[in-house]
Design a protein around this nucleic acid. Structure first.
Length: 190
DNA sequence: GGCATGATGGCCT
DNA sequence: GGCCATCATGCCA
């Protein structure tokens, strides 16, 4: 994961195709392939780190390759991978996953929803993998939540678009997804 | 101490 | 396509 020590955009592209593996307390193994990401860094007005370090965003100012978890709209837990040298204040939001293992358990965690509805959105992904604030700051090289691989999607298969749901910095091309994946939150241009 | 504000999702029309 | 639940955070008073 040395690649995560660079800039957020490179990290976001690199994370496409990486595998995300979650182990539940009962030993159940859930996993999938990351197919959609967004890049955020301190120079970006849409980033939680834009106004400098706070208690909430501290993980993004820590070492790369750790989890930055936050509650969105008071409802949804969203998972980011921290990026850059210590003090950099950057991260990559994981927005969608192609499920591989434990889809039956993911369905249960998602209230019976199936197929693409399982993980095609950051809040859905968080719920499907039982991500909560317990994993805040967790080292993603270790169980129970790991990122492995990355850099496996060829340049020509990566689509670059504007991000979803942001107001400031709305025209920045910082969302990336795997072109032919059926598992992304939405295609074309956000 | 109070209040406006989301890196969203689900349900309703 | 539109509405709104729900709450931690952060900025302001």
């Amino acid at each position: 994961m040395t690649r995560l020590r660079g800039d957020a955009v490179s990290a976001a592209r690199w994370l496409l195709g990486a595998r995300l593996v979650r182990e539940l307390p009962d030993g159940t193994r859930l996993s999938g392939v990351i197919v959609e990401t967004e890049a955020y860094d301190q120079e970006d007005p849409a980033s939680h780190t834009y106004r400098g370090p706070t208690q909430r965003n501290a993980a993004m100012f820590g070492p790369a390759g750790h989890a930055y978890v936050y509650l969105s709209y008071g409802v949804h837990w969203c998972l980011n991978v921290t990026v850059g040298p210590v003090g950099f204040g950057a991260g990559v939001l994981l927005r969608a996953l192609e499920p591989l293992e434990g889809t039956d358990v993911m369905e249960r965690l998602r209230g019976g929803r199936k197929g693409r509805l399982l993980t095609n959105g950051p809040g859905k992904l968080g719920q499907a993998l039982a991500v909560t604030s317990e994993l805040y700051g967790h080292d993603l090289a270790l169980p129970p939540l790991q990122v492995a691989g990355g850099g496996s999607v060829p340049e020509e298969d990566v689509v670059t678009t504007t991000r979803i749901g942001v107001n400031r910095g709305a025209d920045a091309l910082r969302r990336f997804y795997v072109r032919d994946s059926l598992w992304v939150s939405r295609r074309v241009h956000g």
